[in-house]
Amino acid sequence: MLSPAFYLGLFLLVAPWQENVYKTKREKMVSQQIERRGVKDPVVLKAMRTVNRHEFVPADQIKNAYEDRPLPIGYGQTISQPYIVAYMTEVIKPQSHFKVLEIGTGSGYQAAILSAIVKEVYTIEIVPELGRSATERLTSRYKNVQVKTADGYNGWKEHAPYDAIVVTAAAEHIPPPLIGQLKDGGKMVIPVGSSFLTQMLILVEKKNGSTTSRNLLPVAFVPLTRKKTE
């Protein structure tokens, strides 16, 4: 029978190698899926290279963690495609002094990316099971992130106003309390559409009391109409 020391030795031997594999995958993810599609902000790219995405997906999805697609995380929710996470982060033009509110913690990956860039991240998850697991993942390693399991509709009034709000779950209406907790000049980004598709993102901007929206096409736009000869 093999001794526990053998397994420990094997683990110590394999673990760094495994980490290198993930690092290579992350590099590839950033260069092929993110940079190539136009995300340029160096702080965003650095965060995407640093945060271990495979730690935020269910065990049966680890092998797919760095693929160019959203993945199911249970409870009918998904972890967004890496490019969408990077794009949503870049769109709010994050600064190191920013205070950001995230609605829909899900796996916690978006919050982890934000935490590597901004000063404070407040994130709210409505599904208790997801909230619990995200808290476990985030609070030990990402000290500037606070997780709350609650209804995100009313935002997190105690820490308002926010420089930016990232809504990761598609919503059929944008809660007025969230607009209220956005600083003047602040930005809110929200996805629209099926979570399994490359989503349309809406950027909501608040300026001088007026709120406007802008559609952001997350993919390099190729017209949907073509000439017959094509």
Binding site: Y153, N154, P175, P176, P177
Partner: peptide, 17 residues
């Protein structure tokens, strides 16, 4: 208590649904 419906509600709306 968290189930609300207001499809595409105006961004100018101030009251919570």
């Amino acid at each position: 208590p968290v189930l609300r419906y207001a499809p595409g509600m105006s961004l100018a709306a101030e009251e919570a649904v």
